[in-house]
Design a protein around this nucleic acid. Structure first.
Lengths: 329, 329
DNA sequence: CTGAAAGCGCTAACAT
DNA sequence: ATGTTAGCGCTTTCAG
């Protein structure tokens, strides 16, 4: 491996001069700079940013810790982060945290001296970010927020998302509307649920049907059976993927969507809009969310004392073919 | 930030002892180890792996360089890599290379001293991997191979994929079959195309319809017009996403799938199987490909002189509803 | 303008 | 069993 020492030897100058020349410091003559750069180029020199980090105490690296639950929107956000991070000269180190304790993954990131962390917390819980606040490591939350405390956050307004979905269903005549969520205190789930409840209340609809499946397909099936007994006419789902599952299960029971039950998903996954019976869904700008999270963390690193900023996008209801007005006889 | 020096001071021992104790070296007494570990814990010590890297010349980091072209299969592979890498104690640093020169991204990875690189080359060209071979940095190619040279590679057998798709269409009566690819010397594109051509030749079908759109929606439309003029009855597409596009365009022209034209995609994206008119497609095990790529790069790092290994999965034809036999009157 | 020296936090070889 | 020393590759004072 060629180092500045090697270059220094060839160029007949000191290590310090090489370092300064390569970094375009002002106190090196143009001639020397040119000469040294040429030699570096010829020798195929690639700087060792590890050594640089050790001195500068900055790694120009952002850690991304998030769960991947098979939702294709994830990649859009990652791409958004990647693209804007690269503009700032930062690299991205990723780990998918699954459903376990995120603390270990966060510690790993800290050990690797990332300058900041973008985190999608699994638990709506201060504990998740405790180390980060203790160690004063800049971080921003993405997509999922935490109720207690006040943190930098980029995501969409899921409360509003829950509202517009419910509102629409009521407006087209539905009264027995269910919400299919996850359970277990997930921020977005809570928010959508709140929006759902509040909207029903506004219209004076007492009866709520709140189902939780905790990512368990079997429980989802049971949930469906339960609401079918109750003769509900519409379901709002926490995600598009869940919505698809619900539709399939309903089809298996011979229940037609949207004729008998209307379904609204959440995410607006591209590919789901294409086929027949395109999904009615709530849309959020995933790429943009990732992008803004990256911009915010870089800002935060440059200026750690900035007070928490929230960038919240309004989701949009995309009405397609899985919802239908109810004939109120 | 608390360092081993701080711990040493509190514990009343030397830095070396702390280092050894924390790393469970055998020449430290159990008592001291226990004491030091306790202090480290209490002080909230997190090791600085940057410093460690500088000494050990290993970062336990793998670089992943790949294009993201909106194909949701990408995330599956990333997840596969992530999961098995974590088992080995490696972290993953990702960058999406778009259509530009991948060399810069690779250099960035080298500068960051990754122990190895998993690369999906954009160009079927030795130049892409030149630095890596020069600098003797372990790498494995994933999904896309390079014709010249012989490299470690994990992916599926796209030649075979092209064959089974074509073979199936011929068996159900099609004779005028088109292949819709990308062009511009992409390995997988070439392979599928080869499989397509060879199979047609085997059946003595002279006429080939090879279209290239280079990811350009407009050119895709023109391609479709062209093959419609030729009255082809089936199209094999380079990807599921492209297949969807083709189907939509065909629908716009009032051409019915599969009644008038059969379509085969490539990728077997989950969500596309769910709706009515599920896509006939060629399936590849993306998660597994990522996983094996990770295992292979770690192997390669431990033993750089291993000769190139190829792990090639046989894709599978998934027959669904976008293909139909032809009535040969 | 250029160079010598110190040091980032850690490990490893060699003493003790 | 523990400590001393040197050094990884780089940047950064401070002198010259």
């Amino acid at each position: 491996m060629v180092t500045i020492k090697d270059i220094a030897k060839i160029a007949g100058v000191s290590k310090a001069t090489v370092s300064k020349a390569l970094n375009n410091k002002s106190d090196i003559s143009k001639k020397t700079k040119k000469k040294i750069k040429k030699i570096a180029e010829e020798m195929g020199y690639i700087p060792n940013s590890i050594a640089k980090c050790l001195v500068e105490k900055k790694t120009y690296t952002i850690g991304l810790v998030l769960p991947y639950l098979g939702n294709p929107t994830t990649i859009e956000r990652i791409k958004g982060i990647n693209d804007s991070l690269f503009n700032y000269g930062f690299a991205l180190i990723i780990c998918f945290s699954e459903k376990q304790n995120q603390q270990n993954y966060i510690k790993e990131m800290i050990s690797r001296k990332v300058d900041g962390i973008i985190l999608t917390p699994i638990m709506n819980n201060l504990k998740e970010v405790e180390i980060l606040t203790n160690k004063k490591i800049p971080f921003v939350l993405m997509s999922e927020n935490i109720d207690e405390g006040s943190f930098d956050f980029v995501g969409d307004d899921d409360f509003y998302g829950g509202k517009i979905a419910t509102d629409y269903l009521i407006k087209i005549g539905h009264k027995k509307i269910a919400y299919f969520g996850i359970g277990g205190n997930i921020y977005s789930d809570n928010q959508i649920k709140k929006g759902y409840i509040e909207t029903l209340n506004e219209y004076g609809i007492e009866k709520k049907y709140i189902m939780e499946n905790n990512f368990d397909k079997q429980r989802l099936k049971e949930n469906i059976k339960e609401v079918m007994k109750e003769k509900i006419t519409a379901i709002i789902c926490w995600s598009d993927i869940m919505a698809i599952d619900v539709i399939n299960n309903l089809n298996d029971y011979g229940v037609k969507v949207p004729e008998e039950i209307s379904i609204i998903g959440y995410d607006n996954i591209d590919f789901l809009s294409i086929f027949h019976i395109p999904l009615t869904t709530v849309s959020q700008p995933n790429y943009e969310i990732g992008k803004q999270a990256a911009i915010l963390i870089v800002e935060k690193i440059k200026n750690p004392d900035l007070k928490p900023k929230k960038i919240i996008f309004k989701p949009e209801l995309i009405i397609r073919k899985t919802t239908k007005e109810v004939n109120n006889v």
